[in-house]
Every structure is written in structure tokens, then in C-alpha cells.
Amino acid sequence: MDVVQHMFNPTVFVGFVVGILSLLAIAYQRSDIHTLILTDVVECAMLVIIAAVGTDLAEALILPGLVVGLAEFLAVSEILIQKNKLKKKGRKITKLFEEFLAVEEPKIDRDIDHPKMEILYSASRFISLLLVIYGAFLTGFTGGAVMSLGLLFYLLAQGITSKGISSEDIKDFWEAIVGFSGIMWALWIILGFVGFYLFPDHYVIFLLIAGGALALKVGSKLGLIGDLKF
């Protein structure tokens, strides 16, 4: 018998114990901020219960859970602060991380030329194409990282050689990539994972859909980092 199968029962037990304890503590809690902090412990219990399965599928389900959890905490904290602000009148509404938000675009008034780096002028398109194709063959997280490296290299090279990419173009491009990444997320979760359960006989097709969609999603998301410079 595999060692992971021996580890399943105690892990699920510990996960349920922690979940029940923290939910009871939330039930007796009155303050908003304490409830929010205790929700973090409930998330620990959820992660442990998923991890008890011990397969690659469990790992692939933990990763979106973590990211969604972070987004939830950000949104709920923002709502909490706004709610407290609305109680007091005469204060202007601010964001949670307002010190870190850019107010206006920084401007560089002198030309920077990079004459030594010939690769940025002549071979940027070829190298990025090579990396994207290689990433598409790798699939999954590794493929996405390689692919995003290609996109990032292309965008940074275009920005340095300033081949007609304006700020408006970048904004449109950003929106388009975000939408594309969302569609790929839906493909990964809905077609990939639900397909495994509904049609187990055709698992190879759904495995390829999930891996390819994951590669495109990670690649497009990380490729957005290249936009921040312009």
C-alpha cells in the first residue's frame, strides 16, 4: 500500500478539526476585523483537506484556491475600510494601498539609445517566436513561464527601440490580454477538469485542453509585466 494512502485519514481528520474549531470561533466573534483574520485559519483547513488527496490534481486545485483567497481578502478588506469610512462624514474616500498607486505617468525627456545591443533590433521577433512555440510544446506552468518570457522579451525590445507603440495601444492591449487570460482560465477549469469527470474515456483530449489553456493563461498573465514599463 502506498504511503500517501496511509496519510489520507489523519490529514482529513486534522483538517476538519481545525475547520470546526475556527468556524466556532467565528460564530462567537463580534468584531469585524477579528472575523476577517479568523477566515485565514478556515482557509488553512480547506488547503489541508484538498492536499490530503496527494495527487497532481490536488496540487492543481490548490493553486487557484490560493490566488482566489488572496483576491477575496483584498476585496473584503477594501469593503471593510470603505464601510468604516462611510460611517464618518467629511472624509474623502481613499484606497487601501493608495501610497503604491501611480498618480501620473513618469516622463523621460532624453533619448536613450542602445547601439551595442544589436539583438534587440534584429532578432527580437525571432527569439520571442521561438520561446512562445517552445512553451506551447511544454504546456502547463513551465510552458507558460517560457512563453511569457518570449512575450516579455518582445515587448521590452519594442519599447526600447520605440517602434510606434503608444500609451493608448498599451491600454487596449492590456484589456485584451486580460480578457484572453480569463477565457483561458475558463477553458482550464471548465473544459479541462469537468471533462475528466464527465468523460473519463477521452481523458487525453481534456488533459491536452487543460495543459494548453494553463500554458496560455500563465503566459498571457506574466506577459503583462512587460507593459508596466511604458
Binding site: I33, I37, L70, F73, L74, S77, L80, I81, F97
Partner: peptide
């Protein structure tokens, strides 16, 4: 995020 929220509150 939590530390920012606590300070703000």
C-alpha cells in the same frame, strides 16, 4: 494586506 487593514481601521 491584513496589516494595512488593521492600521487603517
Amino acid at each position: 494586506v491584513f496589516i494595512r487593514t488593521i492600521i487603517r481601521k
